[in-house]
Amino acid sequence: MKAHSSQIRRWYCIAVVLLFAHVLVSESAKAVRESIEVFVPCGMSIPFYAVKAEFEKRTGCNVKLVFDNAVVLLRRIRKGERPDVLITPGELEMNQMVKEGYVDGRSVRTFGTFRLVLVAPRGNRANVTKLEDLAKRQVKTIGIADWELNSVGYYAKCALERAGLWEKVKGKLVKHWHALKAAEFVCKGRVDIGIYYATCPFESGPEKLEEVGVQVQQRPYQIISQIPTHLHPPVRVQAGMLREAKNKKMAMRFISFLLEPHSQKLLSMKGIPNYKDERR
């Protein structure tokens, strides 16, 4: 009888140990699953560090942010990298990823916008006050991101075309495939004027400008004026889930989180204005 009771206790202990081990393995596997990787354009570092902290606090999910130029991020995806979520500074990049089959078009949401502005080197040596001034003789060079690769360049080209200025100024354009390098042109006085986003990267990612030698605290640039919004399509800052995302459920939860009132307020405070159009 005693031997039988001892055997029962032994099997009971084994069962408890196995159950405990199963729980540990399950929790460990769950911890591994509950993480996502987000590709973010480098000019949006400040707002996304803030969003990351809030999302991790809410969900317990680890968010790995990968910052790089938007064009570079797309190239990395084409070469085989698979984040869970892609953030783009406009529709141009996101549309390319959807068309090429990398991003699930049904997942794409617009969560912010940017204002397109004229930016001059400090001192405004060409005396530019409005978009039409770009056609004047004193304006020799105009900085712009490559409009075939960057949303900011695409919107700038649209504005110049709709204003009837494209043919008059296209010979003055100094373009670069890397939007940050294009912004560097004006900060270092290499062009007379540039067309960029108002806050990105000047407010939402100033450390990226510093990485290319721009002393942001010295304000080597000045924003001249906003380009009228009727001259270009609405700027839609977007988030989309990769078709091959490892954690699709949490990826969509993160995208939805960007649209919550608290997140919208936080993003706006950190340099990504809210997109007012209800057609998200």
Rank of each mutant, 00 (worst) to 15 (best):
E81D: 12
V169I: 15
V117H: 02
G105P: 04
K188Y: 14
G205S: 09
S35C: 03
R280Y: 05
T113S: 13
I193H: 08
V63F: 06
A120Y: 07
E184M: 12
L242P: 02
K52Y: 04
R243N: 09
A251E: 00
E161M: 09
L242W: 05
V191C: 03
V237P: 02
N150I: 06
T59S: 11
C42K: 09
H176T: 00
E148R: 11
H176E: 01
S225Y: 09
G205H: 13
V214A: 03
P121C: 02
R10V: 07
Q264H: 08
N274D: 08
G112A: 04
E148C: 03
F48S: 07
R76Q: 13
K175V: 14
T129I: 09
R33D: 08
A15F: 13
A126M: 07
R219C: 09
E34Y: 08
K265V: 10
E167I: 00
K246Y: 06
K276S: 11
P83S: 00
Y197G: 09
I77K: 05
P47D: 05
P83I: 01
H176P: 00
L131W: 07
K157T: 13
N247F: 06
P47R: 04
R280M: 04
E184D: 07
D104E: 08
G194R: 13
V25E: 04
T229C: 03
L74V: 10
F202W: 13
D133L: 01
Q96M: 07
W147G: 04
R115H: 11
R125H: 10
E278Q: 07
L231Y: 08
E81R: 05
L266F: 10
D84R: 00
L65N: 11
D192K: 03
K188I: 12
Q264F: 12
E260M: 06
L209Y: 15
E93Y: 02
Y12C: 13
S263N: 14
L134C: 11
R78P: 00
L65P: 10
E81P: 00
R190I: 08
T199L: 15
K181S: 13
T199G: 13
L134R: 12
F48N: 01
L73A: 08
C42D: 14
L134K: 07
L258T: 06
